[in-house]
Simulated scan of single mutants.
Amino acid sequence: MLEKAVQAAEILQGFIHVTRFLDEAQKGVVEDVLKECVQAANREVDDELFGKDRSLPDSECEKEPTVKDKLAPSWARHLGKLKHAVAFACIQRRLAEKFPNNFTVEPRYRKDEFTRDVMLTDRRAGSLRPDIVIHFTRNATRIQCIYDLKFPCGYEVGNPWNTDVVRQMKSYAGLGGQCKPALVTPQFGVDRR
């Protein structure tokens, strides 16, 4: 009899765990992980390419990278891709330990033309692909919060909220969610405007 009661309690606990959003404290843990991973990725890539505590000079950011395996036509974009990859690996590893069913890295979304429901898609045209989404347990289309990682190039730390970024965040807001989409940068952490 006691064994059946324990099994029933475990099933109920499993059901409760499977059907919910993260609470505010858990969301805070996620945001701390995002900040830490973005800062670590920024430092790690810069240190590896330019030396400890050094970065690319601002004047080089729009020039072609002088590396064998170019990921993009400019240093700014090349470094962004490298830093995103390192940050994503860190985020995947750390969030999978705590919230394996409540986050997705680079999901691609679109709205259904008729119902306007948010759907996952593999179509590029007309879709959006935020960097990190926390969502209802095991349901990536029930969005809780959207985060986009931004890495500056060079030493200059300007305002990351340029016109393109504001437009991007507005488009992410159109996907819904419980909080405003946020940028995550090495300098400013999680930033919502």
Rank of each mutant, 00 (worst) to 15 (best):
C37Q: 13
F15T: 07
K63P: 00
F15A: 10
V6F: 04
S55N: 09
G51R: 00
V30R: 06
V18M: 10
L12S: 05
V45M: 05
E48L: 15
D46F: 09
E44S: 13
E31V: 01
V29N: 04
N42S: 12
R77Q: 13
C61K: 02
K70W: 01
E60C: 03
L79K: 12
E60A: 05
V18S: 12
E62Y: 06
V18K: 15
T19V: 03
L56H: 01
P65Q: 09
T66H: 11
L56W: 00
I11L: 15
E3V: 14
G80Y: 01
E60V: 06
C37L: 02
D58P: 11
D47S: 08
V29W: 04
V29E: 11
V45E: 03
A8V: 02
Q26N: 05
D53I: 00
V29R: 10
L71W: 04
A72Q: 10
E31D: 11
I11F: 14
L56T: 00
G80V: 02
E64D: 08
L34Y: 02
E62T: 10
E36D: 11
V6S: 02
D69C: 00
E64M: 12
V45P: 03
V30T: 12
V38T: 10
Q13L: 10
W75E: 09
L22V: 04
F21E: 12
A8P: 00
D58H: 10
L22A: 08
L56S: 05
E44W: 00
P73E: 05
V38Y: 02
V18G: 15
A76S: 11
